[in-house]
Simulated assay, not measured.
Amino acid sequence: MPKKVKVNKSELKKKSKVKDNDDTLKEKLKKRREKKSFDEVHTRVTTYLEKPVREKMELLKDKDVIDSYTQLVNLAIKHYIAKHLD
């Protein structure tokens, strides 16, 4: 006679969560496909910074105040343009 197998209900719940996560993953992948690449959104610009300015930028990045140098430069330029051209 075969042994009785116990089914762990929490395991069943985990599987249903995987399905929910799978749906979320599909949505994320769809958005990623629709998202433009970095090169499509940005233009490369080469410039020179004074050493103390670069050092301050590094400190901001190390302290997680900014995500990237690109983000900081874009925000600073947008602020300057808004102040002087708008």
Rank of each mutant, 00 (worst) to 15 (best):
residue 1 M to A: 11
residue 1 M to G: 13
residue 3 K to Y: 09
residue 3 K to S: 09
residue 4 K to I: 09
residue 5 V to T: 09
residue 5 V to D: 02
residue 6 K to A: 14
residue 7 V to Q: 05
residue 7 V to S: 06
residue 7 V to I: 15
residue 8 N to L: 03
residue 8 N to H: 03
residue 10 S to F: 08
residue 10 S to A: 12
residue 10 S to W: 08
residue 11 E to V: 05
residue 11 E to K: 06
residue 11 E to S: 07
residue 12 L to Y: 06
residue 13 K to N: 15
residue 15 K to A: 14
residue 15 K to S: 15
residue 16 S to T: 10
residue 16 S to N: 10
residue 17 K to P: 01
residue 18 V to L: 12
residue 18 V to T: 08
residue 19 K to R: 07
residue 20 D to N: 06
residue 20 D to R: 08
residue 20 D to V: 04
residue 20 D to T: 06
residue 21 N to S: 04
residue 21 N to E: 05
residue 22 D to I: 12
residue 23 D to Y: 04
residue 24 T to S: 14
residue 25 L to I: 11
residue 25 L to S: 05
residue 26 K to Y: 05
residue 28 K to E: 03
residue 30 K to C: 01
residue 30 K to T: 08
residue 31 K to F: 05
residue 32 R to E: 14
residue 32 R to Q: 15
residue 32 R to F: 13
residue 33 R to C: 08
residue 34 E to K: 15
residue 34 E to Q: 15
residue 34 E to I: 04
residue 35 K to P: 02
residue 36 K to I: 04
residue 36 K to P: 05
residue 36 K to H: 11
residue 37 S to C: 09
residue 38 F to I: 14
residue 42 H to K: 13
residue 43 T to G: 07
residue 43 T to F: 04
residue 44 R to E: 08
residue 44 R to T: 12
residue 45 V to F: 00
residue 45 V to R: 01
residue 46 T to M: 00
residue 47 T to A: 08
residue 48 Y to G: 09
residue 49 L to D: 05
residue 51 K to W: 03
residue 52 P to L: 10
residue 52 P to K: 15
residue 52 P to R: 12
residue 53 V to K: 10
residue 55 E to A: 14
residue 56 K to E: 03
residue 56 K to Q: 06
residue 57 M to S: 01
residue 58 E to Q: 13
residue 58 E to F: 11
residue 59 L to Q: 14
residue 59 L to D: 11
residue 60 L to D: 00
residue 60 L to Y: 04
residue 60 L to E: 00
residue 61 K to Y: 14
residue 62 D to A: 15
residue 63 K to Y: 03
residue 63 K to I: 00
residue 63 K to W: 00
residue 64 D to N: 10
residue 64 D to G: 05
residue 66 I to K: 04
residue 66 I to L: 03
residue 66 I to G: 02
residue 67 D to R: 15
residue 67 D to N: 15
residue 68 S to V: 07
residue 70 T to W: 00
residue 71 Q to V: 02
residue 71 Q to L: 02
residue 72 L to H: 03
residue 73 V to D: 00
residue 73 V to W: 00
residue 73 V to M: 03
residue 74 N to R: 14
residue 74 N to T: 15
residue 75 L to R: 07
residue 75 L to H: 02
residue 75 L to T: 05
residue 76 A to H: 02
residue 77 I to H: 04
residue 78 K to L: 04
residue 79 H to F: 01
residue 79 H to S: 06
residue 81 I to Q: 01
residue 82 A to Y: 06
residue 82 A to I: 03
residue 82 A to G: 12
residue 83 K to W: 00
residue 83 K to L: 01
residue 83 K to G: 01
residue 84 H to E: 01
residue 85 L to Q: 06
residue 85 L to N: 08
residue 86 D to R: 13
residue 86 D to K: 13
